[in-house]
């Protein structure tokens, strides 16, 4: 399929509950019947934590610190690890696409989508590397992590790009198992995680990152997405799903 005319581009800022609801709504509706593939770029406002579907909150997050600093914790429908989404330092992307236009093989589909991030980094003057299963690194340190889920023949992959994230917050909020740091030969979070601004040695702005990501995914998929907003069907489903993502029995299930 030539996707040149077909992809939608949706840009927004919103709460964690809203952003997770939008990703799930688009995945659900695109699985119901063929619809245009979607590239979303969004910001968590206010800053929030998302945790993987299978994670135990209290083993993953310093909940006390998060609560006392009014940082919401929301469980995703995708697996993977916990993420701190800094409203002033991180852009999240999501792609909802038919599997055929990405790759049927899960690992290859991560690679293909993450190639869009690598191109984006090139446009920003940085060299990135895809590190299976789901990370992108610059100078050996993580700047992006992604998570994918599939429903029928449609995949949702969302992920981060930290351009100026407050890494000290990550250290306070996320309980990183020592063996994970050891597995990456890292002593502290600063040896393992970085930001684009830090690696570039100068501030990179939010808008620069958004522009680079759009160009990066355009190159990776040979597409030219058109800017769009949610339709009524999506908005209605989002309204329902936002409730789920606001519920304690979802977010604190384990």
């Amino acid at each position: 399929m030539n996707g040149l005319e077909n992809w939608r581009l949706i840009l927004n800022e919103g709460t964690a509950e809203y952003n997770m609801a939008v990703d799930e709504a688009i995945l659900t509706l695109n699985n119901l019947r063929p619809r245009a593939n979607v590239l979303r770029l969004y910001v968590f406002k206010p800053s929030a934590i998302t945790i993987g579907y299978f994670q135990k909150v209290y083993e993953t997050i310093n909940v006390e610190y998060a609560v006392s600093n009014k940082i919401p914790i929301v469980r995703r429908i995708t697996g993977g690890g916990a993420v701190y989404h800094d409203e002033n330092g991180e852009i999240t992307y999501s792609i909802v696409a038919d599997v055929g236009s990405v790759d049927f093989d899960v690992q290859e589909s991560y690679r293909k989508i993450c190639s869009g991030i690598l191109y984006a980094l090139n446009f920003l003057g940085l060299d990135g590397r895809f590190e299976p299963v789901n990370d992108v690194t610059v100078n050996g340190k993580k700047v992006s992590g992604s998570a994918q889920i599939r429903k029928g023949n449609v995949l949702l992959q969302h992920g981060t790009l930290m351009y100026d994230t407050d890494v000290s917050k990550i250290e306070k909020l996320l309980l990183v198992p020592k063996d994970k740091l050891a597995a990456h030969s890292a002593k502290t979070i600063y040896d393992r995680v970085t930001t684009l601004s830090r690696e570039k040695g100068s501030k990179i702005s939010k808008q620069e990152v958004i522009n680079a990501l759009i160009k990066g995914f355009e190159k990776a998929f040979n597409i030219k997405p058109y800017e769009d907003t949610l339709d009524d069907e999506e908005k209605n489903l989002v309204k329902e799903l936002v409730k789920k993502y606001g519920q304690r029995n979802w977010n604190f299930r384990w």
Binding site: G52, Y53, F54, Q55, K56, E59, I77, T78, G79, G80, G81, A82, V106, V133, N134, A147, Q148, I149, R150, K151, W254
Partner: peptide
């Protein structure tokens, strides 16, 4: 539990 991936959930 963990930070693995699995689908369909």
């Amino acid at each position: 539990s963990g930070d693995f991936f699995a689908f369909p959930i």
